[in-house]
């Protein structure tokens, strides 16, 4: 039994939450990430955008080991990510994730969705887990739905539950993979509002999204990816007003409202 590597909470406050070094990944013969370098500081809010198939999902999914990689190095909270189950577990404990398709557990109520991992992973007792779940369900403004099943909720409500489920684990970093892309337009705002609130609380966030309004409002840095490479990165005011590369300009033309 290998002792689970501890991720030093707040070690060198302001230090790197995620360090990605020369990361390359292939699906068979197809290379989907090319020597990607990326450092995310503690408390930083990073937005990643780019055309479909550019490797945005793949990049953030390597961070919590949902995808493996062939070359390069990833450190999360200082811990080097390997295939070792204990390491993977330790990293996943400190990294929360929200998916495009919500991925709530349909056989569990909203409250149980949040409480299950608190009990199994964080070792909380039943009442403690339920209490903490209610706290975070209140935070995403949905406490009254606690007893319902996911199928009874709207898409926006489901995604807010998914956010509550992830942040109830009190991770150091939150990853979002297009959290509003599967939502009807009128529900996008309620989810983005919750995410803005989370940013104001100082959560380290990596958000793949095409919601450029959100990027302008909360991002410290916006990254543009294309064909498995980071093509451009800049603070939002620079990124949106003076994009350097031709590809970024073309992409922004498509996603920004004219």
């Amino acid at each position: 039994m290998i002792p689970a590597p501890q991720i030093a909470a707040g070690a060198g406050a302001g230090g790197a939450a995620i360090e990605i070094l020369k990361l390359s990944k292939w699906y068979g013969a197809l290379q989907v990430l090319h020597d990607v370098d990326l450092v995310v500081d503690r408390g930083e809010r990073l937005v990643i955008c780019g055309p479909s198939g550019s490797g945005k999902s793949t990049l953030i999914r390597t961070v919590n080991a949902l995808e493996g990689f062939q070359r390069g190095e990833i450190r999360v909270g200082g811990v080097k990510l390997t295939r070792e189950p204990a390491v993977v577990e330790a990293v996943r404990r400190n990294v929360g994730m929200v998916f495009q398709q919500f991925n709530l557990f349909p056989h569990l109520t909203v409250l149980e969705n949040c409480a299950l991992s608190l009990r199994l992973v964080r070792g909380l007792s039943g009442p403690e887990a339920r209490e903490r779940s209610m706290h975070y369900l209140t935070k995403v403004r949905i406490p009254e739905q606690a007893g319902k099943y996911p199928a009874q909720l709207s898409g926006g409500q489901q995604q807010r539950v998914a956010i509550a489920r992830a942040i109830a684990m009190q991770p150091e970093v939150m990853l979002f993979d297009e959290p509003t892309s599967a939502l009807d337009p009128e529900m996008v705002k309620e989810v983005l509002d919750v995410m803005v609130g989370l940013a104001e609380d100082g959560m380290t966030m990596v958000v793949v999204t095409h919601e450029m309004g959100f990027a302008r409002q909360v991002a410290d840095r916006v990254i543009f990816m294309d064909a498995g490479r980071i093509v451009e990165q800049a603070p939002p005011e620079v990124f949106f007003t003076r994009p350097q590369s031709e590809r970024t300009r073309a992409f922004l033309q498509q996603v920004l409202p004219h």
């Binding site: 929360g96 994730m97 991925n103 557990f105 349909p106 056989h107 299950l116 992973v121 684990m169």
Partner: peptide, 25 residues
């Protein structure tokens, strides 16, 4: 697949993923 991924991302061990999330469904 998303059910496996969500359970793993929350840090559930393989046994718990199977018995708590996948099998009941």
């Amino acid at each position: 697949k998303g059910q496996w991924e969500a359970a793993r991302a929350l840090g559930l061990r393989p046994g718990a993923v199977m018995t708590r999330i996948i099998l009941p469904q």
